[in-house]
Design a binder for these strands. Sequence first.
DNA 1: ATGAAAGCGCTAACAT
DNA 2: ATGTTAGCGCTTTCAT
Lengths: 327, 327
Amino acid sequence: MTRPVKRPTSSDVARAAGVSQTTVSFVLNNKPGQSIPEETRRRVLEAARRLDYRPHSSARALAAGRSDTVLLSVPDLPIGQSISRFVEELAAALAEHGLTLVTHLEGAHGRSLPDVCAAIGASAVLGLEVFDPDTVRSLHRAGADVVLPAHPTDGVSVTAPVGRLQAEHLIGRGHRRLGYALPSEPGLLPMAQGRLQGVTDACQAAGVEPPLALSPGMEVDSAARAVARWAEESVTGVCAFHDEIAIAVLAGMRVHGLTAPADLAVIGSDDITTARLAFPPLTTVTFDLREAAARRAEAIVAAFAGTRPEPSADTEGTPRIVLRSST
Amino acid sequence: MTRPVKRPTSSDVARAAGVSQTTVSFVLNNKPGQSIPEETRRRVLEAARRLDYRPHSSARALAAGRSDTVLLSVPDLPIGQSISRFVEELAAALAEHGLTLVTHLEGAHGRSLPDVCAAIGASAVLGLEVFDPDTVRSLHRAGADVVLPAHPTDGVSVTAPVGRLQAEHLIGRGHRRLGYALPSEPGLLPMAQGRLQGVTDACQAAGVEPPLALSPGMEVDSAARAVARWAEESVTGVCAFHDEIAIAVLAGMRVHGLTAPADLAVIGSDDITTARLAFPPLTTVTFDLREAAARRAEAIVAAFAGTRPEPSADTEGTPRIVLRSST
DNA sequence: ATGAAAGCGCTAACAT
DNA sequence: ATGTTAGCGCTTTCAT
C-alpha cells in the first residue's frame, strides 16, 4: 500500500546512458535547435525505457514555470453521457499535445475552483460555460496561464445552439406555441439560460410567441403539474434542457393519459442512453463531440503558444439532430 | 486570456511581514513543535492575505517529496448520480484534511492511469474497484504513495454487496430462478463480476440455482432477445448491473408485451434519476455514499500517516433498498 | 555535440 | 523564537 522504492531521476538515466543529465533533458524533450546524434539519442531513450523513467512533474513544472496539466471544471451533476464523451474526446485530443486533462466536479462542499487549480498546479482551466471575470482573475492568480472560455467569443459552450435547434425542429413541424423545461439544480441554471435563449431567438425569428418556461422537476407529480400548465396554455411542443428532464415530462404526460408526440411533442438534448429506451423514444439534439473537443483542444494549445486560435465560424461542433420518435 | 503577472512567492510574504522565509513556511503550515508568538503569526498571515499568496504547489511537492493531490479514477461512463454524489462527498471529506481530489475518466483514448498520476504528481490514487497488482505497481512507480483499494480488505468498492442485496430481495419475494443483466462495456466488467458474484453467493446460500447471466445491451432489440432467453429458462427475476441496464430490460419486456413485476421482476442498482421515472418504476439498490466517502477519506489519510485504518466491520456504507415498484 | 552550473519556490535540518 | 542553508529534480543558459 505504501511505496518504499525511490523512483529513478533523470540523473539516473544520464548515468545509465553515459551522458550528462542535460543531454537526457534535451533528448527526452526533443529540444529543437540541438544536434544530438542518432546513436546518443538511442542510448538515452533505451536507458529511460529500461529504468521505466518518468519525469517528476513537480520538478519539471517548477523549473519550466508551467505544468502540462489542464483542469476541466464540470458543473453540478448528471449531464448525461454526452458530456462524458466530450470529456473523453477532449482528454484524447489534449494528450496528443502532451497535455493531461483532469476533472473537477463542481460540488457544493468541495474546494473552490481556484483552490483546486492552485493545488494541482494546472496551467489551463476549462469550463463548459463562459467564466465570469472575477473567476477568471482568481484563476490567473491561482497560476492558470490559460482560462477558457473567458469571453463569449472564445468558442463558447458545447451547448449554446442546442435550444435554437430544438425550437427550429418543433416549429418546422408546425408547432406554434412552445414550452421550455428548465432543470431544478441551481448549478445548471447558467447553462439552461443559454439554451433557453436559443429557443427564444428561434421563436422570434419564426414569429411565434416566446416559450413558456417551467421547471417540471424530476418527480412524476411535479412534472404532471407542468404538463397540465402547458396544456392550459395550448403549448403543443416542449424543448427540455436535457434528456433526463424530457423523460420527466414524458412521465408527467403519462399521468394525464397524454401520449407523445400526438398530444405534446417533446424534444430533449444530449442523447443519453436511457432516452433511446424511453417510451415513446425521445427526439434529441446532439453534437459531434469529437469535433467540438478537437477544436477546444486546439484553442488551448494555441492560447499556450500565445497565438489566438483563428476564430472559426462555427466553434460549436457539428450539431446533429437525432430523431428517434416521430415528433 | 494569458496571464502576464507574476504571482507572489513566500519570500515576498516574508519581506512584507518583516520575517524570514522560513518563518513564513512554519506559520503557513502550522508546523508543530515551533513556538511562534501570536504577534508574528498574525503579521505573516496578514501579509499573505494581503498579497493573495498561494503556495506554489510544484515547489512544495518537490521540496516535501509528496503532493496533496489525490487522483480518483472513474470507470467508463455514466454510473448515475450515485457515483457522482460519492465523488462529491469524497472531495469534501478529503478537503477537510487538506487534500485535493481530481478525477480521471477512464476512457478508451486517454492516457493511462499511471501516466495521469505521474503527470499531475498525485500522491494517492483511488479507484472504485480493487486495482490489479500490475496496476498498483505501475502507480507506485508513477509516484503514488497510496493506492486504494489495492487489496480486497482495503475497504473495497462502493459496489460489492450490491449483487447480494439484489438477489436476497428477489429470493425473499419467492423467486427461485434468477437472471443477471451484464453491461456490455468491457471497462465495467470487473465491477460487474463483483456484483454478479454477490448474486451467485446469495443464490447458493438460499439453495437456488445460480443466476443466468446475459448481456442485454442497450438496444431494445438485443434486450428483447435476452428477455426471451430468460423466459425460456423460466427466469422470473432479473438483477441488473445498474439502472440503465435495468431500463433496457424493461424496454425489452415491452416488446414481448410483458409487464414488471408480474411477468418478470427487475431490480437495478444506483438509483439514477431516470429510474424513478421509468414505467413501471424500478426497484433499486443503493448506498449511503456520505458514509462510504468519509470512510474512504479516513483510509487515505491513515495510509498517508502510515497507520493502517482500523478495519471497520462494514467498509461499504449503509446499503439501502429503494422500492419503487411492487417487485 | 555535450556538459557545468544556476536557479525555479519551497521544506526541513541545523544553527543561533 | 527565528534565521541560514542545503537540497528536491528538472530546464536552460552559457561554455566548452
